[in-house]
Amino acid sequence: MESAGLSGLILKRLASGLVTLFIVSLMVFAGTEILPGDVAHAILGQQATPDSVQAIRDELGLDRPAILRYLEWLYNFVQGDLGVSLISGREITDLIDTRLRNSFFLASVAAVIAIPFAVGLGLVAALYEDRLADKSITIMTLVFVSLPDFLLGYLLLLVGAVTLGWFPALSRISSSMSFIEQLQAVALPCLTLVLVVSAHTMRLTRAAVLSVMNQAYIEMAELKGAGRRRIILRHALPNALSPVLNIVMLTLAYLIVGVVVVEAVFNYSGMGQLMIDAVSKRDMPLVQACGLIFASVYVLLNLSADILSILTNPRRRRPK
């Protein structure tokens, strides 16, 4: 009975996630089509001749209705056929292959460091509220959320690569490098991401834990004679888990955006660089493919946050 209700809830959430993905794909497609006038003209700019415009129109199939093109694009995408780049003429799947892996590598190393670091700091700040540790952590994070990603990137580059010479200024990784060498290559961009993301995560964690610590059941636990350890581990943590999980997912989602800028600072060959390139050259099929990949990852992260929250919260798990 209980498990049937639970799996039902999760199935429902999965279904709504699928709908979101569908809407997102529609918006990615529509977003690249909202141009007043004609994509072909926009791509060619001043070099547009009637012939070249027609060539592009043919290539993109622009003479057919948008809805048909959308369905075809989505169908191919799901099959793993992302189409062909307008500019380079290469298969988008090939273009994306190593870059996606590079970005994923960078983001996961950053996540592995940032999440325990930031959540830990947030906990410390919340548990020592208004003491020196909390105040210094809070003011530090306020400064760090205000710093643009590229400032942190260049500062680290200046210090870590140019002045100290500990790390390479250009972050290139290749499959011939050992794992340690790869780690060293991404050290600076990774550190940048960690700093950028941690500040947000820590602030949110602090707020979530504080709101739990102010509940009446925490006072009750103390009045039952529970020690500090027990109060935190047994009473605060299970209730803070679901908001903190959500925050962790937000952090991961934030990494997606951070990756775009940080890759540009360090000339790191990843999805971000690829998408920027595509946007500035108006390589529409490539923009669509990159956009949909980024957006899908984001939607999936949100979805898993929600499912984890259902699993960890009895009030959502067993609604009355």
Binding site: A216, M220, A221, K224, R234, P238
Partner: peptide, 16 residues
């Protein structure tokens, strides 16, 4: 010494 609070709903931990 033990305590019985006014709001039972808020004083029980929702997670257990």
């Amino acid at each position: 010494v033990a305590y019985v609070a006014q709001s039972a709903a808020a004083s029980f931990n929702p997670a257990h």
